[in-house]
């Protein structure tokens, strides 16, 4: 499938899953909100420039916000991880020029440990910022810590399941192809 089509399809699929499945789960605890949608931003191709990455993340976050009636909340968090993502990729990439050889961040293109770190850092950043915005209006410090911790744990579990279910085999790109 074409990269663009694939990403457009993911855009809608992730939002629908987040809104109509994950947000419909009866609340287990006030600390636990199952978030998976931001994986879309992590899965965007390397070739996307930083400016475009942020624009896509903003539009993506805002479309989720209109469903959840929190205009701006998820958009702000998505833009933050889109901004930080290229720095992390530069630090964590396994070999020279892997951004050119592979399409998008995955276990295959970055290696298991760097990719896990990549996901962990961005998940923590995303939830930290999201809960911080919520915390500014109400809540205390323990609420902040507890919610970031619990939500990150649940998100990592969901991401692990998603990675196992939808194994993305990245083709090694050569100049000849």
């Amino acid at each position: 499938m074409n990269d663009l089509l694939k990403n457009i399809f993911r855009f809608f699929a992730f939002i629908l899953v987040q809104v109509y499945i994950l947000h419909k789960i009866p609340p287990l605890h006030r600390f636990i909100v199952p978030y998976l949608y931001f994986l879309y931003v992590l899965w965007l191709p390397f070739s996307l420039g930083r400016t475009w990455l942020m624009i896509v993340a903003f539009v993506y976050g805002l479309s989720l916000d209109y469903f959840l009636l929190t205009p701006g909340l998820h958009a702000a968090a998505c833009v933050l991880i889109a901004y930080v993502r290229p720095f992390l990729v530069n630090i964590l990439i396994r070999q020279e020029g892997a951004e050119q050889s592979y399409g998008a961040p995955s276990i295959h293109s970055m290696g298991l440990a760097p990719y896990s770190l990549f996901v962990l850092v961005l998940t923590l950043l995303h939830h930290g910022y999201l809960v911080f915005l919520e915390w500014m209006e109400f809540g205390n410090f323990w609420y902040f810590l507890g919610k970031v911790g619990a939500t990150t744990a649940v998100s990592l579990l969901l991401i692990l399941i998603t990675e196992l279910l939808f194994y993305r085999k990245e083709r090694y790109r050569t100049n000849t192809a």
Binding site: R50, T51, M54, I55, F58, G61, L62, D65, T70, P71, G72, L73, A75, A76, V79, L80, Y83, L133
Partner: peptide, 19 residues
Amino acid sequence: NFLFFLALQVLALSFLFRY
């Protein structure tokens, strides 16, 4: 990039607080 990032953040936060 950084300025653009700040601009988008301000836009998003103004949406949020206004809402």
